[in-house]
Computed example of a mutant assay.
Amino acid sequence: MASKSKGGGKSGGFRVIIYLVKEREDGTDVYLITMFDKSEESTIKKEQLVKLISQLLEL
């Protein structure tokens, strides 16, 4: 996701990690797992992402 306030185009934005948990008749539950500034962290490790998803599924 680009951030106009930061300038810098695509590389000056944010990374958003979402996870689809389930679809229902009345809609879809989509959970935001994390969002981070690409200038502070360029990527997220697979192990970190798996841990975050596991914690979400325990709720």
Results as ranks from 00 to 15, higher is better:
M35A: 15
G27K: 07
I18S: 12
V50A: 10
V21F: 05
D26Y: 08
V50E: 13
K51C: 00
T34G: 09
E25C: 08
G13W: 02
G13M: 06
K38S: 08
T28K: 11
V30P: 02
I44T: 01
V30F: 03
E41P: 00
G9C: 01
D29M: 11
Q48K: 15
K45P: 03
K6S: 13
D37P: 02
D29R: 12
L32N: 03
R24D: 13
Y31P: 00
L59R: 15
F14W: 14
I17P: 00
V30G: 01
K6Y: 10
G13F: 04
L20W: 08
T34C: 11
V50I: 13
K38Y: 02
S3C: 15
F36N: 03
S54W: 00
Q55G: 14
F36P: 00
S39K: 14
K22P: 02
T43F: 13
G7N: 01
K10T: 09
I18Y: 10
G7I: 07
T43K: 15
A2T: 14
K10L: 15
S3F: 11
R24I: 14
K4D: 13
I17V: 12
L49D: 01
A2N: 12
K38R: 14
Q48E: 14
T28C: 13
I44K: 07
I44W: 01
K6H: 10
S11V: 06
K45T: 06
L56H: 10
I17Y: 13
I17G: 01
E58V: 06
V16Q: 10
Q55P: 00
I33N: 01
G9T: 03
E25H: 08
Y31N: 10
K22R: 15
V30D: 00
R24T: 15
D29L: 15
L57D: 11
G9R: 05
Q48T: 11
T28R: 12
E23I: 13
E23S: 09
L32V: 12
G12P: 04
I53H: 03
E25P: 06
E25W: 09
R24F: 14
V50H: 07
G8Q: 07
K10W: 14
V21M: 07
I18D: 00
T43P: 00
D29S: 06
R24Y: 15
L52F: 08
K10C: 11
L56T: 13
E41W: 01
E40R: 07
L20P: 04
G27H: 04
K4W: 09
L59P: 00
